[in-house]
Design a protein around this nucleic acid. Sequence first.
RNA 1: CUGGGUGUGGCGCAGUUGGUAGCGCGCGACUUUUGGGAAGUCGAGGCCGCUGGUUCAAGUCCAGUCACCCAGACCA
Length: 407
Amino acid sequence: MRFSKTFIKTLREAPKDETAKNGALLTRAGYIHKEMAGVYDFLPLGLKVIENIKAIIRDELNKLGCEEVLMSALQNPELWEKTGRFSDSEVDVWFKTELSAGGILGLAPTHEEPLTNMLRTYISSYKDLPLYIYQFQTKFRNELRAKSGILRGREFLMKDLYSFHTSEEDLDKFYSEVEKAYGRIFDRLGIGDATFETFASGGIFSKYSHEFQTLLPVGEDTIYYNGDKSVVLNKEVLNDEVLADLKVSRDELSETTGAEVGNIFKLKFKYSEPLELKYIDDNNTQKTVYMGCYGIGVSRLMGVIAEKFADEKGLAWPESVAPFKYYLVGIGEEGIKKAEEFYEDHSEETLFDDRDLRPGEKFADSELIGIPYRVVISSKTLENGSAEVTNRKTGETKIVKLEELEK
RNA sequence: CUGGGUGUGGCGCAGUUGGUAGCGCGCGACUUUUGGGAAGUCGAGGCCGCUGGUUCAAGUCCAGUCACCCAGACCA
């Protein structure tokens, strides 16, 4: 991408209404644009980050045999009334709207009901199971208070996966496969070291659910962990019974804050029973399908990663999610000419700052935007056919032969 | 929803005791600059969140309303 051709413009100062670090930096660097409280647009750079995150998740889920779909956002109340979840007292985050022909619709805050219902058309035998179905979709939740930049929005991107099984053992088995896949996903996103599987409230059908919490000062959840972080739990389940279950004492736990980036949940019959998702087993007996659900907050992850790696100069993306690998700057007539050539060969992975600006300004923007490597080509570096490559995170600079820079 | 705060060019801000708006950044043109956010000159751009009221006169006063931020509560 050529900087001169994009409509993006960086800002020296964040808008006054962006106080959260992630929102302020992502706005200043031109990744997102705010529409209203908790509602954001993703600009070209931001969309690339989102797509990179999705690609990693997609890769890991596909390896488990999951199938991707895209379901509707508009929801039929009748369906949700079957589980009691259209009621505002039951689910208080609904956005509801009206059909001009009469009648009410909801904007989906999640998708257990429609997917479970849809599968009644396709599941009839034990031979149809198991199934693992996921999507990346915009969710709508009418939060009382949106806050923290893109960490808690009213409209946000989420990956939601649902699994369907003939037995609890099969559900358990898949659940643990997802646990491992989530670990790989967060590793690949660069936040593996700071992300912990956390015991959280499991509702009525299972004792616990698991959250994936990334340690972050602005995180909204209070979590407790033991010395080696082998036991991490959400404050909501901190009680004597749970401590006994997990074989830890209150004294050995420390408190910190985390941002929930994922949540996995054994639903069992919670939705399949009221929605009557059944199959015939090999004894010709009708049985109810076991279910699990597994979420990852995609847009929230972008905010978490942004916030996690930011420093006083700006963003500093891990290479796996960065919108580009190289931030290219040519200095002087000769340097600019050579930079043009380099860009021709590396246009996919390069943000070429070809604007008519002084180098200092480009350097500042390269740091704000947080591309992993800044490549500077000038008459000085060209003396031995090289470029100066600066690592955004470490600040280290190396002189590298142009042809050695990988795509 | 409760409490606190804020709405003035694209962004950040100032605007004294009411007299129809000003600064920095950014933007356009020209000149000089060109490895860490350059300098000069000229210039474009706002009816001051919205509605109503008081007044000869409202960005400034009053009432209402909307939006946004922070804390809390809430978070299927």
